[in-house]
Simulated assay, not measured.
Amino acid sequence: MLVAGNNKGHCYVWEMRNAREQQTTLNPVHKFKAHQNYITRVLLSSDCRHLATCSADHSTRVWSTQDGFQHEASLEGHQRWVWDCAFSADSAYLLTACSDHYVRLWDLSTSETVRQYNGHSKGVLCVTLNDV
């Protein structure tokens, strides 16, 4: 599966067949409106059951990849563009990086911030999580 977002908030999904061949055939399978503004990051969970989208609209959204990309959660609270995210190994948590100088750890079962990491003097552009 190949997923991409654009500057109008649309998310596009293609099915990849013959990924081992030099020329891969991409079959478009789905398009949906994820945000009202630029999508800055699209990330599949390690089990490919969830998709996270970050946006210039100050939010991150989580989607189920089962049954046509159903909306699961909206993570609201950042004050500027959300640039990046990282799923925990079990997909129960999501880490987000934002221009507002904060990194947040979200519990996806409640859509609440578990922890906010302060101390950055400038916006945070990328995050990673190693909880294995």
Rank of each mutant, 00 (worst) to 15 (best):
D107K: 11
S109G: 11
L43P: 02
Q22P: 14
T53V: 08
V114G: 05
N6T: 14
R49E: 15
F69C: 00
Q36C: 05
P28K: 06
H30S: 14
I39R: 10
D67V: 00
Y93Q: 15
T24S: 02
V3H: 02
C11W: 03
T24P: 00
T110H: 03
T24H: 06
S121R: 09
H71P: 13
K8C: 01
C98K: 09
V132K: 15
Q70Y: 02
F32E: 04
A97G: 09
G77A: 12
Q23P: 01
S111P: 02
P28N: 03
W81H: 10
Q36E: 15
G9P: 07
D90P: 14
L2W: 09
C98R: 11
C54A: 13
D47F: 07
T110G: 10
S109T: 14
D57N: 10
T113V: 15
K31V: 13
L75W: 01
S46T: 14
H120L: 01
C85K: 06
T60A: 13
V124F: 09
V132Q: 10
D84R: 09
S74N: 13
D57P: 14
M16S: 12
M1Q: 11
Y12W: 04
H101Y: 06
Y93I: 03
D84V: 03
Q22F: 11
S121W: 01
T65S: 05
S64P: 11
R80T: 05
A92V: 07
E21A: 08
A92L: 11
G9Y: 00
A19L: 11
G119K: 06
N118K: 08
L51I: 10
T53I: 06
Y12S: 06
N7F: 13
W63V: 12
L51N: 04
E112K: 06
W14C: 10
A19G: 06
H120T: 08
V82H: 11
W14N: 03
Q36T: 15
S99D: 15
Q116A: 15
R17A: 04
A56N: 12
A4W: 03
N18F: 04
G77H: 04
R104Q: 12
G123E: 03
S74F: 07
H58S: 01
A97E: 07
S99T: 09
F87S: 07
W63K: 07
D90S: 12
H58W: 07
T128W: 10
S88V: 10
H71C: 10
L125F: 14
K122Q: 13
G77S: 08
H35Y: 13
Y117I: 15
W83H: 13
T53F: 05
V62E: 11
G5W: 12
H78Y: 09
D100W: 12
C126P: 07
H50W: 01
G123I: 12
E76W: 08
L2Y: 09
E76M: 01
L94Q: 03
R61V: 12
A34C: 03
N130H: 15
W106N: 00
Q70G: 04
N37P: 00
V3P: 01
V42I: 02
S99C: 11
L26V: 03
N130W: 08
G68L: 02
Q66I: 09
H35A: 11
H35W: 04
A92Y: 03
R49S: 15
D47Y: 04
V124I: 02
S109Q: 13
K31W: 00
S64Y: 09
D100N: 13
G119M: 04
T25L: 08
